[in-house]
Write a protein that binds this DNA or RNA. Structure first.
Length: 411
DNA sequence: TCTGGGGTCCTAGGACCC
DNA sequence: TCTGGGGTCCTAGGACCC
């Protein structure tokens, strides 16, 4: 158990205070690898790597040898020859994730999932029924351990950003609280990479102008920061470095794209093989769309070549769909148009993602100008499909296209 | 170190509309 | 015939996150 900046009980005040540290960031430790160690007692205490070609997750024993997530598999084996390497068992991880999220949702109604293994929980307003955020976090950790058999680290702070940083610092198997009075003391000595959105490229940019800590970034004017990394990133970095983060914990967000991809190795492939792979991917994605009751308008096909350069090509349909046929056609058209490039450079990965997702019940039809008289047909279509006549405002979608008519069933 | 699979958000240019 | 500003959408690419 790692130490906490502050781990007292109820030392703040017993009232609900807007300024109190009441956002939790809960993050499972080395998630995939921990599930493997949980399910295989012989793996416990040993270095475990999940994933072959690339490291998806490494146990803390493997991390101790220098193995990192996203590292090439051969490099990882060189660093850690004794490591147990296992193939991912996605189903097991999904199950574990569900079980943990049930505990989250049982803790507070305000849960915002970030990925399979982490979430924000807002526990403001739970003092009376559940105690202080520290009490809640302590119980949450114990429950996850007892019920699911996994270690989880929790950061507690006044803002999302600080809570997230705190859980990172508190790993593994820790609880770390940032008291409101000591936020800058905690934040400013951290390296710039601790800022959300600062990866490899931005780190280098910042280092080049002599900025190494969050405090250094805070000393820079917003104008200079914007000039350095662009408008959006500049404003964001400025805010975070000055400890301004007004984002709320929000529930009920839906994803805006859904996709699948497949790495195919360097061996030469025929056009037929590539096409078969893409057809399979289109099938998978459209199936998942339908299962989730979602439809999308933009078809994005992703390519990666032998030299590891990448390209994407997209096509936006006039109407959102989850049907296989139109998405298949758009995908295959894109593949055909890329044929020459694929011949020349060699393909190592192909993927599809459907973006601009909407809920399936928000259907939209596009009527060409010439067919506007066919509005009656559109009404029939809606009535057949949804048993409603409700058609909302028609939108002109372009000179050559006509009007998009969103038809919303009144449910 | 030669490389997975799932995502998000931002930028910038061009087309188009008013 | 020449000309402006504001806005949205589409496309391609890049950075980043887990």
């Amino acid at each position: 158990m790692s130490s906490a900046v502050h781990e007292g009980r109820g030392t703040e005040t017993s009232r609900v205070e807007p300024s109190s540290a009441s956002i939790l960031h809960a993050d499972l430790d080395a998630f995939y690898a921990s599930v493997e160690q949980r399910d295989n007692p012989s793996f416990r205490g040993k270095p475990v790597i999940v994933g072959g070609g690339v490291v998806l997750a490494a146990s803390y024993e493997a991390k101790a040898c220098g193995v990192k997530t996203a590292m090439g598999g051969s490099a990882a084996r060189r660093l850690c020859p004794d490591a147990i390497v296992v193939s991912p068992r996605m189903h097991a991880y999904t199950e574990a994730s569900k079980a943990v999220f049930e505990i989250f949702n049982d803790t507070t109604p305000l849960v915002e999932g970030i990925s399979v293994d982490e979430a924000f929980l807002d526990v403001r307003g739970l003092w009376r029924i559940a105690g202080s955020p520290i009490d809640i976090a302590t119980r949450l950790r114990a429950r996850v351990k007892a019920d699911v058999g996994l270690n989880i680290t929790v950061g507690v702070a006044r803002t999302k950003f600080l809570a997230k940083v705190a859980s990172g610092v508190g790993k593994p198997d820790g609880l770390l609280v940032v008291p409101p009075a000591r936020e800058l003391e905690f934040l400013h000595p951290l390296p710039v990479q601790a800022l959300w959105g600062v990866g490899k490229v931005t780190t280098e940019k910042l280092h080049r102008v002599g900025l190494f800590t969050v405090g250094d970034v805070a000393d820079l004017s917003e104008e200079r920061l914007v000039a350095l990394v662009g408008a959006a990133a500049g404003h964001k970095l400025h805010s975070l470095a000055h400890n301004i983060d007004r984002r709320r914990v929000t529930t009920g967000k839906r994803r805006s794209s859904m996709g699948s991809q497949r790495a195919m190795g360097r061996r030469p492939k025929t056009h037929a093989e590539i096409e078969a792979e893409l057809r399979g991917i289109v099938d998978r994605v459209t199936r998942r769309l339908r299962a989730a009751d979602r439809v999308g308008r933009t078809v994005v096909v992703r390519f990666r070549f032998d030299d590891y350069t990448r390209a994407t090509r997209s096509h936006t349909l006039t109407e959102a769909t989850a049907d296989t046929a139109p998405i298949m056609k758009a995908s295959l058209d894109i593949l055909d148009a890329m044929e020459a490039t694929i011949e020349r450079k060699g393909l190592t990965l192909i993927g599809l993602s459907v973006a601009n997702l909407q809920n399936a019940d928000a259907v939209q039809m596009t009527l060409p100008f010439a067919d506007l008289s066919a509005l009656d047909q559109a009404v029939d279509h809606v009535r057949d499909k949804f048993g409603t006549n409700s058609i909302s405002r028609a939108v002109n979608v372009g000179k050559d296209q006509g009007y998009a008519v969103p038809m919303l069933p009144d449910r």
